[in-house]
Design a protein around this nucleic acid. Sequence first.
DNA 1: CTCTTCAATGATATCGTTATCAATCACAAG
DNA 2: CTTGTGATTGATAACGATATCATTGAAGAG
Lengths: 339, 339
Amino acid sequence: MVTIREVAEAAGVSQATAARALNGYGSVSARALERVTESAARLGYKTNMIAQALRLGQTRAIGFVPGDIENPFFAKIARHLGDTLEASGYTLLLSSSDERPDRERKVVETLRQHMVSGFVVAPTAQDDAPHLAQLVEDGVPLVLIDRRVEGLRADSVTVNNEGAGFQAVLHLIEHGHRDIAILVDDLQIASSAERFAGYQKALDAHGIRLEPTYIGVGGASREGAYEAAHRVLTLGHRPTALFATDNFMTEGALRALRDLGLRMPADVSIVGFDDFDLTTFVDPAVTVVAQPIAELGQEAGRLILRRLEGAEDEPHNVNLLAELIIRGSVEAPPASDAA
Amino acid sequence: MVTIREVAEAAGVSQATAARALNGYGSVSARALERVTESAARLGYKTNMIAQALRLGQTRAIGFVPGDIENPFFAKIARHLGDTLEASGYTLLLSSSDERPDRERKVVETLRQHMVSGFVVAPTAQDDAPHLAQLVEDGVPLVLIDRRVEGLRADSVTVNNEGAGFQAVLHLIEHGHRDIAILVDDLQIASSAERFAGYQKALDAHGIRLEPTYIGVGGASREGAYEAAHRVLTLGHRPTALFATDNFMTEGALRALRDLGLRMPADVSIVGFDDFDLTTFVDPAVTVVAQPIAELGQEAGRLILRRLEGAEDEPHNVNLLAELIIRGSVEAPPASDAA
DNA sequence: CTCTTCAATGATATCGTTATCAATCACAAG
DNA sequence: CTTGTGATTGATAACGATATCATTGAAGAG
């Protein structure tokens, strides 16, 4: 790797002038500027980011800590976040928390040791995030994505989960459903809890009692989602409709339905979450709450860039709207079960 | 961030002894060792990786450049590669090439500027990779994954693509098919070219002439895959079987089939690639060539760790076997078309 | 008691970059 | 001819960690 010292030597100037020429500060004669830029180009000089980082106290890199990189939701966010940051000369460093609080803490620590300039994190827990609180205290730019942490004064980009959940369940109720089950991930995860709250609210608004056995909780895996769906669908008093609150849950529901020989929507109506492949592949296509995933990533990028440029104002909370896309997976409940 | 200087001060020793105590070299008195470790723990000292990297000439980080992070194939590799490296104290830095040679070059350059200790790359092009050749020349550990580059003396982990393609097409031929179309990604990508070669070989071995219109080439996107599949399936002389050579192609084929109202396997038999969600979701499930994805990632991790530990021997080429998983998407061609 | 030996330690150079300070030079004003 | 001004430049000090070299002191050998 060629250093600035070698460039200076080749140009016949001191490294100080070479630095001035390359970085455009101080004053440099036209002649020196030309010779330095020429030498730099010829030798293929690339500034050593590590040395620069040590000197400047920060890298031009942002740490991104998604819940699970194998989840297409986060993969897509990574893509758009990365594109946005790259346009401003920042690099994205990605390391997944695998939805485990201890891993999240460790990953954040490692990234801090690498002196990243800021963080975009999908927090694993709704509360109790001392490592994130520490970031805020130390003035390190932090943007929470998809989920928030109670009491943490940081920027965030989320979708209107409660409203989306409410709207989804309302849609089912309007089609005459009253026995509506819900499939959720761990309620410790803020977004899950909010979607659940929307479900509860919609039931309440129509005087429907919440049936505890209708709550299917699956871990952050495809298998857990399937099992939860399977359990709910084999209940003695089977629900006539299902609200799946994320893409894994939606897939699990569709699989369970198929394996149990239940027809959608004839036997069970479904509203899913996230507009991913499978939902448009099955017949009929699944009515889903679609999150503006690309915007989530881009907005997070914009927020962190603002902070990196020195913005010191109050935390911004960008709340994006999820949209109900009506397709063919919801109709009136089978006559025998109708209220 | 607390520095080693502060730890030394707190322990009442010079930073030299503090460094010795913390890193375990030179000789340190029991007393000094105890006081330093105590101070470090109390102050929460974490070594600054950036400073360490500058001094040591390398970070304990590995750059991973997948073709496309939104492709589940690479996401899964990232997961397993990351796990393997992490176990040895390395961090994974991920930046996607989006299957674009120019981007690949840029990404590799950026990662080099960040002084990563090694690279794992899924090369976009089979030849003409000067930036990768440069790595090899500079002695930077490099492992090619999924694909190889002609004439590049670097470690690699691949699957037996040609054999897998051969086996897949043979399976179709054995069921009586002779009009077999293939869906491939850009033939510039080594793995695609090899799978195509396997297809060719199997046809040759049974004296079947290769029909040029039966070759559907789609870009590295879901849309391109769908279009290629659609084109092939609407041909005047429609093929009775389809070999889809990656997961996007397989999905495209299934979608096109569905949209065209064709039944699988009654109208068209299919052998897909990669054992992902959709293939087991449809009815019947799709017969696929399943790649050992987890092993690909782990093996790449092992290879790069060997180099980081100083191995200087000849390049290792690990070739893993893909396995044909027979399910329900292949049967004899419809009678009217049989030879 | 003197000389050697070695453990223990502090001072210091280095990695490559940035940015400040001090020095030099030309040129114009007096 | 002297002095001042400002542009241009080189020398140099950081950033934090590591590793070498030189120094100290104590213990053991003669």
